[in-house]
């Protein structure tokens, strides 16, 4: 299937820092829109530009950012608002996979819905991964979903991800609508059963 996501490979960009919230990823004033098109240029906008629009020193402002499909982040990335605009902005900026120490729950789920794997390397292994990455920041990094490994410079780091997310990415079913729709009969049956949709009769 065309939607199957098995491996993301390419250079990686590191964004240091923990607890980076979705307001920082995409400030609310840039969500005054009715489509996700064009959100890429606003990713981390207030960190990348000063109030006069002058570019600041920031990993996303480097030449390398333009051809780095992988983003490396820290702990609790994507906390805060449920705005899908946040992963959309990162995806439209050009990222295709994220490696972090932990992710906020709604953010991680939103990433899966876009076919945008967010994988977790835990504990000491994360520190070792960062060291390896820093020793050659331009080397190619691979997020291999089939092997459940991040591969870099001949080294392998196991990653964590909810089994259901992994499976839906590998099977190309991360866009869940079609499968949900295929159970219409069961949905209607449920509607008929729920007390609050049926005047609380039979309770």
């Amino acid at each position: 299937m065309a939607n199957e996501i098995k491996k993301i490979t390419g250079r990686a960009l590191r964004l240091a820092g923990d607890d980076i919230d979705t307001d920082r990823i995409i400030p609310a004033r840039f969500m005054r829109c009715v489509t996700f098109d064009g959100l890429g240029k606003y990713a981390f906008f207030d960190q990348r530009f000063d109030s006069k629009g002058k570019a600041l020193e920031h990993p996303l402002n480097t030449a390398k950012a333009e051809d780095s499909p992988i983003l490396i982040v820290g702990r609790n990335f994507g906390c805060g608002s449920s705005r899908e605009h946040a992963p959309q902005a990162l995806y439209r900026f050009g990222f295709r996979g994220i490696i972090g120490q932990s992710f906020a729950e709604i953010f991680a789920g939103n990433c899966v819905s876009l076919g945008f794997p967010a994988v977790v390397i835990e504990g000491q292994s994360y520190d070792d991964f960062i060291k390896t990455f820093q020793s050659d920041p331009d080397s190619s990094v691979s997020i291999d979903l089939e092997d459940q490994l991040v591969k870099i410079s001949g080294k392998k780091f196991p990653f964590q991800m909810p089994q259901s997310s992994l499976k839906s990415l590998l099977d190309g079913k991360w866009d869940s609508m079609a499968e949900l729709l295929s159970n219409k009969e069961a949905i209607e049956k449920k509607y008929q059963e729920l007390p609050y949709l049926n005047q609380f009769t039979g309770v």
Partner: peptide, 15 residues
Amino acid sequence: GTSQVRDILATQTMA
């Protein structure tokens, strides 16, 4: 997220 808003509008359910 918005993809789930879509799913619920279409199916009254979500994954």
